[in-house]
Computed example of a mutant assay.
Amino acid sequence: MIIHFRVIGLLLILLAGSHVVFPWFFSWKEELKRLSLINRQIMTIHTFFIALVVLLLGILCLSSGEELVHTVLGRRLCLGMGVFWVLRLIIQFFGYSPALWKGKRFETIMHVLFAILFSYMSIVFFVAGG
């Protein structure tokens, strides 16, 4: 089980780091101009904090796998993370329009990869939390 926490830790750190390219990749400079100042700032600030939480979860998985598996608090944290990632998996299919990825090679590949990633993390955290 610890190896899964190490893999997830590395994947979460990579996922957090990928947020750095969001403004460029999604053309936020132009896209966000259309929003009010408050909505523009909410988008950028929330993205930063989501990336920070994902980074910290990755570090937690890398540094504290044993504690996550072998303590009551660790198992409760795993259960909570399992709920978080299974909800994220559901949003992957029902929160985003298929029009964003269907018929687009790169977007479809990313959609499938993220679905696999969120499924994997959900399973590992639920198993460790159970």
Rank of each mutant, 00 (worst) to 15 (best):
L56P: 00
H70P: 00
L73T: 14
L37R: 12
L89P: 01
V69N: 01
T44V: 14
A16Y: 04
G58H: 02
G74H: 05
A16L: 02
L15Q: 07
R88D: 09
W28M: 10
L35Y: 15
A16N: 03
E30Q: 14
H46V: 15
F48Y: 14
H46N: 05
G80F: 12
L57A: 08
I42D: 08
T44A: 04
I45Y: 11
L32F: 15
I50F: 08
C78W: 02
G80C: 11
L62W: 13
G65V: 08
G82T: 07
I59L: 15
I91C: 07
T47K: 00
T71I: 07
N39I: 01
M81K: 00
T47L: 13
H46G: 01
L79D: 00
M81H: 03
V69H: 07
V72Y: 03
I50S: 03
V86P: 00
P23H: 10
P23E: 08
T47C: 08
R34L: 12
E31C: 03
S63E: 12
W28Q: 09
R34A: 13
W85G: 00
V83G: 00
S64L: 11
L89F: 15
I42P: 00
G58P: 00
C61T: 06
A16M: 05
S63Y: 06
L60Q: 03
V69P: 00
